[in-house]
Design a protein around this nucleic acid. Structure first.
Lengths: 220, 220
DNA sequence: TTTGCTAGTTACAGGGATGTAAGTAGCGCT
DNA sequence: AGCGCTACTTACATCCCTGTAACTAGCAAA
């Protein structure tokens, strides 16, 4: 198998000749689902009609029937992936605003969303592949504003308030750290001599959280 | 043009029918050069024999003549890229050890190497594409040890020494930040409302440096 | 100058990917 | 029941990419 791309043999589906007929919407969703998974795991270049068709259990022209062309499928997949990301982030943010979550808890929730759901990988793929508008306008600023508000609230009286950009950059750094963990965490841990340490990731996560706490909510 | 992969039309080279004959070594180098560039810009999946051949100015079977197969070319390209990275990092480190560079200067030099030379992109591509051994064993630990030594040197007398893992994690965080800047810096800046601010990257870099200084070399 | 080695060329074969054409079958509606 | 719509299928056309075969030409050594 090639290093650059995953070639799977286009095996015929066996036996069952019963044709299943979904609604157009269901079919689109099933196809998008499979395609997003491939996007996350192996990047946009590995989105091949025959593969996705096999995942879903249809023939590849069925995909073209619903999406017109691979190009349009890819666009729909990207939009779908970003929509999911935005939905989850929105959920995390509003949830954080409702409860009295600390700044660091917000960042931890963001980490969860980006890392485990595979969104970090998709963002990285899209950025590397040159899809420009991978992150929508001002979302990071909104996050930073929420965090900054909390920061000002918990400010010990008498001390001068931190600048907004300090909070903004802290959020950017946190994002870089989260993305970095998701993308190169494993190999970096290897390179740091922590490869065989099973709870090194958790320890780093805690360490990072403590650093951010110290930065955002310094003891008075 | 597709989002997932870059398709360039295979234009015939014009006019000059004079055949140039390099030594085998020169040819290999020229081919590797072009291939590394493509790896950096568009990822391993976009390494296509015809494209690289056109870049170098030969026909595509010439590449197969020197490398045997696309697979072997790809392996050679990866090895070449990692070798360059290691060479440059080694240079940075030994240079830092020779001069009396501060911890942050070391990290800045690493940033320079990873970001501007395009190594960050290559590392990300390889990690995302599933090439496992993208980072060699213990390099990060070596860096951290150099940094930690400096940290202990500049320790104000009487204060208790920091743990090594604190320094190690700081280096990991710095690496994540550097990688993050190289990979998603632009779109993250957009999302932070700093898209039209030309010296936002420099400001973030300074902010990060100050943070690391504070962490590694606290004022006594 | 001739001869040998090999870097390089053109032409073509084979496989895999996208996309098209024409027909089939599931399901709702009358 | 049967009619129509359309989700889906099979078969095929086409293009691109890798790899092979046979030949060509630059350069060095005799």
């Amino acid at each position: 198998m090639s290093i650059g791309d995953v070639r799977l043999s286009d095996t015929k589906k066996s036996g069952g000749k019963k044709r299943i007929r979904r609604t157009a919407e269901e079919a689109r969703q099933a196809i998008l689902e499979a395609a997003v998974e491939r996007l996350r795991d192996s990047g946009p270049a590995s989105i091949r009609l025959a593969d996705i068709a096999r995942d879903v259990g249809v023939s590849h022209p069925a995909i073209l029937h619903h999406f017109g062309s691979r190009e349009e499928l890819l666009a729909a997949v990207v939009q779908e992936a970003l929509e999911r990301l935005h939905l989850e982030l929105f959920h995390v943010l509003t949830h954080a605003e409702a409860s009295e979550a600390s700044s660091v808890e917000i960042l931890n929730a963001m980490a969860e969303t980006l890392e485990t759901a595979g969104h970090a990988r998709i963002i990285a793929w899209l950025n590397l592949s040159g899809v420009v508008d991978a992150v929508d306008k001002d979302r990071m600023r909104l996050v930073a504003e929420v965090v900054h508000a909390r920061r000002l609230e918990s400010l010990p009286p008498g001390s001068k308030p931190p600048e907004f950009e300090d909070t903004l950059f802290t959020c950017v750094l946190a994002t870089h750290a989260i993305m970095g963990e998701a993308l190169i965490g494993a190999s970096l841990r290897q390179s740091a001599g922590l490869g065989d340490d099973p709870d090194a990731p958790a320890r780093f996560r805690r360490w990072l959280a403590r650093l951010l706490v110290q930065k955002l909510e310094p003891p008075s």
